[in-house]
Structures are given as C-alpha cells and as structure tokens.
Write a protein that binds this DNA or RNA. Structure first.
Lengths: 198, 198
DNA sequence: AGCTAGAAGCTAGCATCATTAGCCAGCATG
DNA sequence: CATGCTGGCTAATGATGCTAGCTTCTAGCT
C-alpha cells in the first residue's frame, strides 16, 4: 500500500476545504478520510482527534482572515479602512463558511493556544483601523470589542442563513458600517458624562 | 410501569434547562431521558428527534427572550429603551447559555416555521426601541438588522468565553450600547448622500 | 362497570461515528 | 543489508441517534 504522503497541514487544509463545501456540521472524520483517499484511523497519525482538527481549522481560518483583512486595508485610513476591513471579513465568511463556523464558540486553552495567537493576529488589522479614528486610549479595548461584536454578529447571522433576511443584505451591511463609523467619530468628538463614570 | 406523564412541552422545557446546565453541545437524548426518569426511545413519542428538539428549544428561547426584552423596555424610549433592551438580551444569554446556543445557526424551513415566528416576535421589541429614534422609514430594516447583529455578536462572543476577554466586559458592553446610540442619533440628524442612493 | 383504542412506556436491535489497539509495509539511516 | 521509525491498515469498542414492535395504562364511550 503506497503512502499517501499526508501531513498535519495537509489534513487540516483538506478538512477546512471540506467544511466549506459541505458545512462544518457535516465534517466528519470518515468523510475527511475518504476525501484524502485514506482510512479513518490513519488521520489520527496527523491529528489528535476531531476536537484537535476543529481547533486547527479554526486557527487556520483566523489566520487567513487576519491576512485578508490586513491586505485589504493597506494604504487606507478612517472610514475607508473601516469599510475595507468589514467587507474583507464579510467576503471571507461568505467564501469560507465552514472555516468560519469552526471559529465560533471555542475557548483557547491558554495564552499559548494557537487559537489565542491567531485571534490576537486577527485583532491587529482592526487595531490599525481604529488608529484612523480619534479614540481615547482608555477606550480602545472597548472599541475593538465593539467592532468585533458588530462584524462577527453580522457575519454569523448572514452565514447562518439569517431569518427573514435574503433581500437587501448588501445595503444593510453598508448601513451597518456607516453606523459604526458614525459611532466611532461621535465618540471621539463628544466625551459625555457617562464616559467619565468609570 | 407508571406513566411519567410527559408531553412535548415538558420534554422541550427539560431539554432547555439541561442545555443551560451542561451546555448545548452536551445535550443528548440519553441524558435528557435520564433527567426525565425515562428511557431514551420514549422521548420519540413527544419529539421527532434531536433536530426537532433543538429547534423547539430554539423557538422557546427566542420566545422567552422576546418576552423578557419586551418587558424590560416598558415605558422607556430612546437611549433608555435601547440600553434596557440590550441589557435584557445580554442577561438572558448569560442566564440561559444553552437555550441561546440552540438559536445559533439554524435556518427556518419556511415562513410558518415556529422558529421564524419566534424570531419575528423577537424583532418586535427592537422595532419599538427604534421608534424612539428618528430613523427614515426606508432605513428601519437596516437599523433593525444592525441592532440584531450588534447585540447578537456581543452575546455570542461573551457566551462563548470570548478570547482575551474576561475583564471590563461590563464597561465594554455599555460602551457598545452608547456607540449604537450615537450611530442611530447621528444617522437621523444627518442624511448624507449615501442614504439618498436607494 | 366494562370495552376499546390510542397514547406512552419499554426492550432489542441497527447504523453511524469517534477512537483505540495492534499489526505490517515502506523508507531512511547506520 | 539490517534496523527502526513513520504512516498506513484491519479489527474492535463504546457512545449515540433512531426504528421496530410489544405491552400496559388510561380516557372515553356504551
């Protein structure tokens, strides 16, 4: 029996592709093995198990997303950068729903977890976008979390099929980006009482 | 063998409680049966299967969330209503992580699907909040989707353990609410060119 | 009160999966 | 050429969802 010449990276990549094709929920060790022309137990030579596979796919996805967004905002600033970043994230989720689904609802085991590292890398381009706005240093964490929440929320809802969704999604997305842009601008200009509370 | 006196509602409620306790991922037909003092196959007299159970739990959760948010915004308007709604949703997700997880990433089979109906009911209190802002009628759909994305995003990230999260989450949440408030206010005051496009 | 029919429970059994144990073949190094 | 590691395999186990088919309880009718 000839060797298939697999490796951890190849297995993870194939798993990510398969998840994108048939949906993350349908990603099974058996199907992945079949896709790779190999019997199921052989996968365990490259991956510790399904959970490990999922986490590796998630880390890969976060890394790829970070790269795509970073590239998208090159040379842009302010609202242009915000829009570019948001669009790039959305495009990634639409193009890779399985990969993205793998990133939902997982806890890094520690600060050295590849997932935590990849997540940190994904935060970086968003930090860059934020630098184009006039945000108080004490508020950057909040602003980062806000951006993450907003676009993550939109992406998951859209990727999950939304509810009554379907029509006008593009417009709604641009509207959402503008809302965030307005919020970030206004937040820097006016520092009302409530910001002085904490 | 004495009858347990179950019914679909009782099974679904027990499933929702169990999901909140041990996590939605750990909700299994066997465990639920055990909790109800019944053998696994008996559940199939009340529920078509695991998928059906999950969808019913999701519908229940959406319905309960809609009720909680609706109650929370009674007598409030504008920013007060927005904050109350957002806090109520967040409180619900924190108190019922299993229920909420059941609502993530499911597609209603049709407009008559109980999930679609419950989702529509959840939209209602948010519509009420929006009425406290001066949003152009053509933009209400976008604004609704925006609110849903924002708070869904924050809730899921927080429920999923977040990433480097943990500290200052409350502050970040309030900051996010204020950002949306600013965005909604500014969106009504200024009607820039892009709003006149469609 | 007794009969009947359907609802609600049960045992047994099957299919699918993830996972482990243990074997064997190819390849690279001495 | 021997040797040992690596990566593939078969076989088997245990968990889980689900179906089939039997039995018993109970509601409702006569």
């Amino acid at each position: 029996m000839p060797r298939a010449g697999l490796g951890t990276a190849a297995v993870v990549a194939a798993g990510a592709d398969l998840a994108d094709e048939i949906g993350f929920a349908g990603l099974t060790m058996g199907r992945l093995a079949e896709r790779l022309g190999v019997r199921t137990p052989s996968l365990y030579k490259h991956v510790a198990g399904q959970d490990d596979l999922n986490r590796r796919i998630a880390a890969l996805a976060l890394d790829e997303a970070a790269g795509a967004i970073g590239a998208a905002i090159q040379g842009l600033a302010g609202r242009d950068a915000l829009r570019a970043a948001a669009r790039a994230l959305r495009a990634f989720v639409v193009a890779h729903p399985g990969r993205y689904a793998a990133t939902i609802g997982l806890e890094p085991t520690g600060p050295e977890d590849p997932i935590a590292l990849a997540a940190a890398r994904l935060l970086e381009p968003f930090s860059a976008v934020l630098r184009g706005y006039d945000i108080a240093p004490a508020d950057t964490t909040h602003a980062l979390r806000a951006m993450r929440s907003v676009f993550h929320g939109f992406a998951t809802i859209e990727a999950g099929g939304g509810f009554q969704w379907a029509t006008g999604t593009d417009e709604s997305f641009e509207w959402l980006v503008d809302l965030v842009d307005r919020g970030l601008c206004a937040g820097s200009a006016t520092q009302p009482t409530r910001s002085a509370v904490h």
